[in-house]
Nucleic acid binder design. Structure first.
Lengths: 116, 116
DNA sequence: TTTTTATATGAATTGTTATTCATATGATAA
DNA sequence: TTATCATATGAATAACAATTCATATAAAAA
């Protein structure tokens, strides 16, 4: 009897989990945001931009690697609204798009360092 | 003259960015955490676990897909301390390891939905 | 102690993504 | 208007990670 009610409890939880499950598309979008933040080369760019905007070749200096790779990464970051940019003459200045980005990185850092 | 000082400003920012850049290993660890959260199949598992612990076959029910795939994902989540588990007889009950995980997902959700 | 149930894992395959190379575009200066 | 500097991008390759299949372990029931 105890087993049955425990089983029922678990089944109820499965139903609750299914009910609370976000739509497939939303999960994909959230996943994509995380994916963009998961690549070390892109994270480096974001740390470089944390203090303020930089033009592309200064980003290249700050993170190392070649110009083309950095430019591809910046495109990915742009496409996902993680960074934004503005042109100033020949240069294009990049900056972090909004506060959530740094918040996410901060929370991730905490999670890495805490050992609850 | 104005150009030179602007250039100097940018160079100073590059130096600041380099100085504030976390160590390579830390960036990798943070990236790995994000990577683990980036896969839709793993995110689904976390949404399923958001309300409380579930045993593996109930996770399988909640997220769909086959047992082996889910088990591999759970291992990845475990290895990265995103979830924890305890055995109860034949069953193994999984739950979310700590509060930061749901926080990160929440912030990501906000970032997806806001259009600053 | 064999069978069944629940979960885990190694190896192979498949699918994805980053990086590189070559080249294109866009803006300014000569 | 062409030469140069700054950035972007398409295509190919190379690195990586997810899923599947088959099988292994672990606990409990028969």
């Amino acid at each position: 009897m105890e087993n049955i009610s425990e089983e029922e409890l678990h089944e109820a939880r499965v139903k609750a989990a299914l009910a609370a499950m976000p739509a497939e598309e939303e999960i994909e979008v959230i996943g994509t945001r995380f994916k963009v933040l998961s690549e070390p080369s892109r994270l480096k760019i974001l740390f470089a931009l944390a203090d303020g905007e930089l033009c592309v070749d200064h980003v290249v200096e700050a993170v190392g690697g070649n110009q083309s790779a950095v430019s591809h990464q910046l495109k990915t970051l742009r496409d996902n609204r993680i960074v934004k940019c503005r042109r100033d003459g020949k240069k294009v200045l990049y900056s972090i798009a909004d506060g959530h980005v740094l918040t996410m990185i901060e929370v991730a850092k905490e999670h890495v360092h805490c050992h609850e």
